[in-house]
Computed example of a mutant assay.
Amino acid sequence: MKTQFTIGKLATATGVNIETIRYYERAGLIAPPARTDGNYRTYGEADITRLRFVKRTRDLGFTLEQVRALLGLSDQRERDCGTIDAMVIEHLAEVDRKIADLTALRRELADAVASCEGGTVAECRILETFSPTVGS
Rank of each mutant, 00 (worst) to 15 (best):
R56K: 10
R56G: 02
R56A: 08
R56V: 05
T57A: 12
T57G: 00
T57L: 06
T57Q: 02
R58F: 03
D59P: 04
D59N: 14
D59E: 15
D59M: 12
L60K: 07
L60E: 12
F62E: 03
F62S: 03
F62A: 03
F62C: 03
F62L: 05
F62I: 02
T63I: 04
L64E: 14
E65K: 12
E65I: 13
E65D: 15
E65A: 15
Q66V: 10
Q66C: 11
V67G: 06
V67Y: 05
V67W: 02
V67N: 06
V67T: 10
V67Q: 05
R68M: 08
R68C: 09
R68I: 06
R68N: 14
R68K: 15
A69C: 02
A69S: 03
A69Q: 06
L70H: 09
L70A: 13
L70R: 07
L71N: 10
L71R: 07
G72K: 11
G72F: 14
G72L: 13
L73W: 04
S74C: 04
D75R: 10
D75W: 07
D75V: 05
Q76T: 03
R77C: 02
R77Y: 05
E78G: 03
E78K: 05
E78V: 06
R79G: 04
R79F: 08
D80Y: 06
D80W: 01
D80E: 07
C81L: 00
G82C: 09
G82Q: 11
G82S: 15
T83M: 01
T83V: 00
I84Q: 01
I84P: 00
I84L: 03
I84M: 02
D85A: 09
A86K: 08
A86E: 15
A86P: 04
M87N: 04
M87K: 01
M87G: 07
V88G: 07
V88M: 11
V88F: 13
V88Y: 09
V88H: 05
I89K: 14
I89T: 10
I89Y: 08
I89N: 11
I89S: 12
E90F: 00
E90K: 01
H91C: 00
H91L: 00
H91D: 01
H91N: 00
L92C: 13
L92G: 13
L92E: 14
A93Y: 07
A93L: 11
E94S: 14
E94N: 11
V95Y: 00
D96Y: 06
D96G: 12
R97F: 11
R97N: 15
R97H: 15
